[in-house]
Nucleic acid binder design. Structure first.
Lengths: 256, 256
DNA sequence: TAAAAACACCGTACACCGTTCGGTGTATTC
DNA sequence: GAATACACCGAACGGTGTACGGTGTTTTTA
């Protein structure tokens, strides 16, 4: 099929919004797009987005590497499809229980997605994916602050702030969670290799870190893990409350 | 993005904290570590962290690819050195003008770093770099909230929230700024290729997006750029104020 | 002063990667 | 039955990070 615009952009858009075109002649495709994208997601979950290889993916799907390009223009486009598919795979945040519960729901859902698919954090940095599911989520997020008297630009600002915070804080959580998997060694090993060297050199240099460490709010030189998952999750919730409190203040101010 | 290779942790730590060791025998090295790291930073600034190639870097430095490994255990370690060097290259945030100015300073400085070195956003996702400059920045950031009566754990929470927000919001800014460079085409071209297809399919589907677009707070289907830099910067400031307002509220609460 | 050791440097090669091309066989349409 | 459009694939291209073995240079040792 020939696509107007001739670039891969048009074809990617078509794939995102309309799915794979159904040709009229020739043998049927043995696979369908959804299955390919799902397999790619599973593979990226396992080994990261850079480690996701078209060859390995083709192999797991039981086809040759070249055949993948019958379904998808390239790896970048496949990643876009993956992003949109993940966005479509979870329920939209609901405004029924009020704005605060709604925004919290949004953040929690995004955090869960980032934890389940850590590669999202690295893929989505480069450019927004204009897929139907991604846009639907945006739309639903904006709807959460509808009807509280906020100016349009403030609605966008508040939602963007929640999403920005979520992304940043989620990467801290994922770091705490994924770190051991990346090196292949256990987290203990990774840390124990560095702890002695670090403790030596940090001695007396960073008073604040040392003080907070003693207060138990921070850990950098003991034999425990540097960032435990629980600590990261607590921090996530703490910071989210900060943002939501201020959103509440704006809403209250708009009421008057 | 994920990077292969894992040199021994000890050597990386030594490079981060002590610099290159000075051997006693044999010919002198023709280059020094700082120059290599700087060249790598310059190259990554130009073409992204994935496009940073050891071969190209070696060529720029006037040595063979294999010789690079005399200085640095591998690409992953080089990236760690780059992160720490960038952290060391800017002034620490100052607490002199009060906590709010200090945190704002911190966020602004981080944003500037992310804009100047977009690859930081992709590199730093995988794991904290335990280098001297990175830790010094952490220490200075925590010092900003010293002496306001906050509990240690709340200090850490507030600073972490600001940093998390900054990272997430910075990636939106960088996206707005870098998008055209990534595709190679101008931003106009990129957008004009997609706009007609997008407008068609979005029609009537996303009421909130459409409404906010009419209010001028959002733009997705006109012929202008989807995310202008100025809009992203405004949103950054708006969201940062949200976070800082809540930090102020916690400080006020702690005073009583 | 001569030998030995330690080291920088590099040519080459390996195992991957994403992607393209030409060719082959198959299912649909004429 | 012929033409056609298509799915699929083997092989190859140009790239990547990195390991290895060898060569030549400098410093230390005897």
């Amino acid at each position: 099929m020939e696509y107007p615009g001739r670039g891969d952009a048009a074809r990617t858009m078509a794939l995102l919004w309309d799915g794979a075109p159904t040709p009229r002649r020739g043998p049927r495709q043995r696979l369908d797009l959804a299955r390919i994208v799902d397999a790619a997601i599973a593979e990226a979950d396992r080994s990261g987005p850079a480690a996701l290889s078209m060859r390995a993916l083709a192999h797991t799907l039981g086809i040759g590497p070249a055949s993948l390009y019958t379904y998808v223009p390239g790896k970048a486009e496949l990643l876009e499809l993956m992003v949109d598919r993940v966005a479509g795979g979870r329920p939209l945040p609901s405004a029924d229980a009020g704005w605060r519960a709604g925004l919290r729901d949004l953040a929690a859902s995004d955090l869960a997605a980032f934890r389940a698919h850590p590669w999202l954090l690295q893929v989505a940095t480069s450019r927004t994916v204009f897929g139907p599911s991604v846009l639907a989520r945006h739309d639903a997020a904006l709807a959460l602050l509808d009807g509280y008297g906020l100016a349009a630009i403030d609605i966008v600002g508040c939602v963007a702030a929640v999403e920005a915070y979520t992304r940043g804080a989620a990467s801290a959580v994922v770091e705490a969670e994924q770190a051991p998997a990346l090196t292949g060694s256990s987290d203990d090993e990774w840390w124990e290799e560095r702890a002695p060297l670090l403790g030596e050199r940090m001695a007396g240099r960073f008073p604040r870190l040392a003080a907070l460490e003693e207060a138990g709010a921070f850990a950098v030189s003991d034999s425990a893990l540097p960032y435990t998952l629980q600590r990261a999750l607590d921090r996530f919730a703490f910071g989210l409350d900060l943002v939501l409190d201020s959103v509440g203040a704006r809403i209250a101010a708009a009421r008057d």
